Simulated scan of single mutants.
Amino acid sequence: MIALNAFAPVTLESLVAQAALLTRVDRKYLLPLDTVADVVSHADPRVRVLDIDGSRDFAYDSVYFDTPDFLAYRLTALRRRRRFKLRTRTYLDTGGSYLELKTKSGRGTTVKERMPYAPIDRARITPSGGAYAADLLAQR
């Protein structure tokens, strides 16, 4: 078990407000569970954990989209500096759903922009969702 209770909580509202101001660099690692527990036990004490009504463990559903010629995949597979990811993410515990466009800049930073999305539409791109994504990609 990972000892998340050792860290101070952060509310969803506070996290969303802070995250809206961030442009970030992501690094993801695949670790055995016992290694994760060890890493977490050595984390900076200033780390905070999302807490919603006393819960610190959440589920979400993501659906990823690509072009017919798999452009998003190819840009990533070929390690292009400028690339994108389009997905819906539905937070199963809160019911919120979003269409998200994540882009990588030439300098390696990730920028995520999103719009509210009907959960029932999470497995498809609606006309308004397609227009939103096309407009954002045209600006890049």
Rank of each mutant, 00 (worst) to 15 (best):
A118F: 04
A133D: 00
Q139P: 05
S41L: 12
G108Q: 00
D26R: 03
D38Q: 12
L31M: 07
N5K: 12
G95I: 02
Q18I: 10
D69T: 07
H42L: 10
Y60I: 07
V39K: 00
A134W: 03
L75I: 06
L92F: 04
T88F: 01
V47N: 09
R83S: 13
T126C: 03
V49I: 14
Y60E: 15
L31F: 01
A77L: 13
V25G: 03
F7N: 05
D93T: 04
V39R: 01
L71F: 06
T76E: 11
K102N: 06
Y73M: 11
A3C: 12
S41C: 13
L31D: 01
R81I: 08
T90Y: 01
S105Y: 05
A138K: 09
R46N: 09
S62Y: 00
D66Q: 02
L21R: 11
G130R: 04
V36R: 08
D121P: 01
K28N: 09
V40P: 01
T35Q: 12
R46G: 06
A37E: 15
A123P: 08
T11E: 09
A72W: 09
P32I: 07
G96Q: 12
T88Y: 02
V10I: 15
P116K: 01
L50G: 00
P119C: 04
L12K: 06
R83V: 08
R56W: 04
A20M: 05
I2E: 13
P9I: 02
T23S: 10
K104H: 08
V40E: 04
A43I: 02
R107Y: 11
P68S: 00
T126Y: 04
A134C: 03
F70M: 14
R124N: 06
L137N: 12
T94Y: 01
A8Q: 15
T11Q: 07
F7M: 04
Y73N: 10
V36C: 14
P127K: 03
A131F: 08
V111P: 00
L136K: 05
D51V: 06
I52W: 05
R83T: 08
G129P: 02
S62Q: 15
D34G: 09
A17P: 02
T11S: 15
R74Q: 14
G95P: 03
V63R: 05
R46Q: 10
V40L: 09
Q139K: 15
L21S: 08
F65T: 08
P116W: 02
T76I: 10
R80C: 13
I120Q: 15
K28G: 06
V16Q: 06
R27D: 06
L30F: 10
D53S: 09
Q18L: 13
G54M: 07
L31G: 03
P45D: 12
T110Q: 05
L50F: 02
V47W: 08
G95V: 00
A3M: 13
P45S: 15
T126W: 03
D61H: 15
D135R: 13
P116L: 05
Q139T: 13
I52L: 10
A3E: 15
P68T: 00
K85H: 06
A59S: 14
L15H: 14
V25F: 09
D135G: 10
G108C: 01
I120S: 15
R114I: 02
L99P: 00
T88M: 02
D38Y: 11
R56A: 04
P32G: 09
T76S: 11
